[in-house]
Amino acid sequence: MSQPGPSWDLVADVQLLLQFHFMHNAFGAATLVALLAGAAGYFVVLRGQSFAAHMLSQVGFPGAAGAVLVHVAPVFGLIVFCVVAALGIGWVGRTVDAGHRAESAAVASILAFSLGLGLLFFRLYAGSAAGIYSFLFGTILGISDRDVQLTFVVALLGVAALAIFGRQLVFATVDPDVAEARGVRVRRISIAFLVVLALAVAITVQIVGTLLIFALLVAPAASALQLTARPARALALSIVLSLAFTWLGLALAYFSNLPVGFFITSLAFAVYVAIRAVKGALALRTGKQHIRRAWSAAKA
């Protein structure tokens, strides 16, 4: 399936991109995914819960495989497994995602088991390597109309939930004791966020796969938080970056016929590295200026 290459004519390129129905679906689903992942990502990074996101995505894998096995849309299986896992983590408490020693060994065992279980389910179904491959690394093919509709509902729920309790969540994250005293139900809201995170993971896995989930759930927000410490701006920037990586990644994958997961992760990584490099250089320069000023002051 070799496409005519892109030109400098953007309008023509977009027409090329959207000439097939599967690309409409890919763009529709990916846009919704990027919205929720970008928004949830801000809280993930602020709370230091990258590990929880990773954990949920791996637990989702046998969910997707199991759904295929019983002839249901894989995203259903993802949602069910991820939400159950989120409630489990929430029930055990924050110690798990903080990566404490005893728990982290237990969690690692559970994760390995769940990937193995997913492998078995896929094998039982048809033994198709392509199916596993797309769930591990993401795909732009095979996103059905039903998938897009479900993704729409899930993204809407997730974004709405964050809009409602996002402020309390920030308070509970940066200052849990004061938040508790001010009447925020810190534990309840942590569990609620894990459920939103589970929803975000479940739909994001469709595009970037289980193993590349950080590209959309962590990287855009990490970059945004490097650029600004204002909550509203960081949140907006995280969503914008997430959308940009997704759209560009889809376009590049379409024209090059290479995996979309590669492009989205590369874009996310490149932007993050560039920001850190520029910030580092600036810090070095101001540092040098300070030293120079101190020197001349000392001499005078």
Binding site: Q168, V170, V174, R182, V184, T228, A229, P231, A234
Partner: peptide
Amino acid sequence: LRIRALDLVRLGLDGD
């Protein structure tokens, strides 16, 4: 922790 001191004070006012 990337949140401004100002935002922390604001959370004290209406973060609940």
